[in-house]
Design a protein around this nucleic acid. Sequence first.
DNA 1: GCTTTGATGGTATGGTTGTACCACAAAAAC
DNA 2: GTTTTTGTGGTACAACCATACCATCAAAGC
Lengths: 200, 200
Amino acid sequence: MPKLVDHEERRAHIIDALLRSAASSGLHSVTMRSVAVEADVSVRLVQYYFDTKEQLLLAAMTRLATRMGERVQQRVRTTGAATDPRGIIEAVLLEAVPTDEESRAFHLIYTEYAVLSVTDPALGGRPFLAAPDEMEAFLAAHLTAAQEAGTADPHLDPRQEAVLLLAVSAGLGLSVLLDQRTAEDATAVLHYHLSRVFPG
Amino acid sequence: MPKLVDHEERRAHIIDALLRSAASSGLHSVTMRSVAVEADVSVRLVQYYFDTKEQLLLAAMTRLATRMGERVQQRVRTTGAATDPRGIIEAVLLEAVPTDEESRAFHLIYTEYAVLSVTDPALGGRPFLAAPDEMEAFLAAHLTAAQEAGTADPHLDPRQEAVLLLAVSAGLGLSVLLDQRTAEDATAVLHYHLSRVFPG
DNA sequence: GCTTTGATGGTATGGTTGTACCACAAAAAC
DNA sequence: GTTTTTGTGGTACAACCATACCATCAAAGC
């Protein structure tokens, strides 16, 4: 063999090019050529590492889903009080609100994939089904913990409240993406509601 | 002149074909040809009534936005108690949760347009900016009315609460579209939260 | 009765897209 | 030192798309 190339690294490089390309002009305008140009490789190489466009899109979606998990986890970690239920819940939900350009691009592509997966059977949106399910259980568990610790309103139904929080987070995030609201407004509304769930 | 055709009717017929086509295989897969086939006319006719594809897509978006307004209004009207603030608010918010196939298709295309308008400058999502703004004012006004009538919790901030309700509605609707939740679950969660806003 | 004009069909065209094919270099294997 | 094998480039190809162009038919105007 010649150059002895690290396949995973090359694949990551190309996927990143795809994400950059999608961020600027939309997932629908991504082509083999545009990805190749952005990655500064030949179209042939993109084919070489991802046989078909469908597989490339699929790989990018998987990477996106992974990064989403990492993002949430890192949010929780960097939030000082790593054991305070309210802090954790707040961190998780705030992740859905895009603040800087990078985060905005990330959530835009994620949303584009989610919507696309509804009609495109090849994408079969597995990440979009599993992730929110885990999230819901996660939130419900921490809400229960908070209730037992006395910081959350004991009258709340943790399970319904978790679903509600997830919907609020997604809805606010989407409205920021659509430029209907500023990130600051969305954050304020989220805090407003959290103050109701965690009184005092 | 020959057949003396009603242009608006023809345009509506073609736009409906586009919406049907988009509902089944996604807005991204809509082509002049697919629309022509679905409308059972020649491609040339589609060109005749909508010069360019961009204009066709734009016209369909406008029609969609109009229909959305009508839908909400009709929901409010058919909801018996047309003067009860809670009933009105509930009706408006429930409209975003797709129940039957028709409503699901409608909201799917609407969402696809919304997401597309972020990256496609030609679509310049005016409907997606104006509509939620009006909605927010509408909800806030009715919340205030409810507070004065004593049916809504007087401690609530009508404006923040309105934004929150809109986000909940959009978030739940999206999760139903993505098959993360059933329409029944989403409706239940919405009712759960409304019971908090309107106690008693 | 001719002429204009609105409505329609068919088809050509230029561009783009995903993918298949051919070629080649360079290092590893033996 | 020859033979594989792996990475890479270039290019050709078939499909498809939006759109422009040409033709036609029928009714309205005069």
